[in-house]
Every structure is written in C-alpha cells, then in structure tokens.
C-alpha cells in the first residue's frame, strides 16, 4: 500500500496534474487550489475510489470487470478524460506485468486508472479501504505536486493542504468501503472541471497530460 501511494512509483504519475493545469489555464485562481481538492474528492476522486473498490471485489469474485469499466465510463463522459485515465492505467499495467514475471509486453489498450490500480491491489492483497485511500491520496498528491510547478508556492503549503483534506479522504473511504456492484458507484460530477480537462487536449502550452 505504501508503494502504491508513493509518487515515485514508476507509472507515469508525474505527467498528471489531477486536472489542475487545465483548471488554472481556464482561469481558476491559484488561491482556489485547496478548495479544488475538495471538489475533486467529492466528485472525480470519489468515482475513482468507488470504481476501484468495486473492481477489486469483482476481481476477487472472478466477475466481469468490463461491467465495472462501463459504469466508470458512463460517469466519465469526456473521451479526453477517459483517455488520460486509460494512459495512466497502462502505466500500472506495465508495472503489473513485471510483478507477475510474465514476459514484459506492451500494453495496448489501458484500463482506466482505478481498475488498473485495483488489479495491482488484488495482486498485492491490499484491502478495499486501503485501496480507496491510495486512490484518494494519489489524486490529492497529483494536484499538490503539480501545484508546485504551476503556482508560486512554498512546498510546505501543499503538505498542509493535503492534511486539511484528510478528514474528507476518510469520509470518501467510508463511503465506498462496502460497495459491491457497478450500479453502486456514485456519479457525482464537476461540470466545469470536466469541460476544462476536455479542452486540455487542444491546449497549446501544457506541462501535464491531464
């Protein structure tokens, strides 16, 4: 679990800003970044954490992960946002092929990040609540780390932000911990953030993939 939550895990996380770069390019004030963490945790991150937990249970039960992916995709209408998540997923799958000691092979079509992380969690015997926590932590830290590149900040500020949203992370974990079926996955949306991230595919000067 510590490995999965580590920013140094080689899965391409450093290419992601958790939607922060698109938000700032769209004119969101840098002062809103802490509140933006709350938006993420209440919407996209919650969807991802729930998807991961349901995927983990489905994998352990030998069920159809495709149905979980369909549920996630229905909650992620922008193909740009889905592709960014699937690219991240490919990074995790790359790592997984190495752990399974299979012949390392290129992963062509990625599963979305929450499902790819769930596969790793299944492989590493990570509990559902820990998986949910990892998803939240990774998302929060993606935004915080990117914030340092995108806004004039003292790095210690972002650590304080991450700690400030810790109670909300625990609420998300509690909210998703017992979910079992794809239909259980909540579908909260952040329409403006979604539009901002969608526009990022055609943004001319960007540091981050998404």
């Amino acid at each position: 679990m510590l490995l999965l939550g580590d920013a140094r895990l080689p899965t391409g996380g450093h290419t992601q800003s958790g939607g922060l770069e698109p938000a700032l390019l769209a004119g969101m004030a840098a002062g809103d970044i802490p509140a933006y963490l709350t938006t993420r945790l209440r919407t996209t991150t919650l969807v991802d954490a729930a998807t991961a937990v349901v995927a983990l249970r489905t994998l352990r039960a030998g069920g159809a992960v495709e149905l979980v992916e369909q549920a996630w995709a229905a909650r992620t209408p922008s193909h740009v946002v889905r592709q960014a998540s699937e690219e991240l997923g490919r990074g995790y799958e790359r790592l997984l092929t190495r752990l399974d000691d299979l012949t390392p092979r290129p992963v062509r079509r990625g599963e979305p990040r929450p499902i790819a992380v769930a596969r790793l969690a299944a492989r590493l015997d990570v509990a559902a609540t820990d998986l949910a926590r990892v998803i939240c932590h990774d998302d929060v830290q993606s935004v915080c780390a990117a914030a340092l590149k995108l806004a004039p900040l003292d790095p210690v500020d972002t650590v304080a932000w991450a700690l400030d949203v810790a109670p909300l992370v625990e609420r998300v974990v509690a909210q998703v911990a017992d979910l079992r079926t794809p239909a259980d996955i909540p579908a909260p949306a952040a329409p403006a953030a979604e539009i901002w991230q969608h526009a990022h595919a055609t943004a001319p000067r960007r540091l981050f993939r998404a």
């Binding site: 140094r8 080689p10 899965t11 290419t15 690219e87 490919r90 990074g91 790359r94 290129p106």
Partner: peptide, 9 residues
C-alpha cells in the same frame, strides 16, 4: 530516467 512509463508507452 526514473519513470519512463509515458515515453515507453
């Protein structure tokens, strides 16, 4: 160097 994932893909 440290995380070649995006480039390797």
């Amino acid at each position: 160097r440290d995380d070649i994932t995006a480039n390797a893909i």
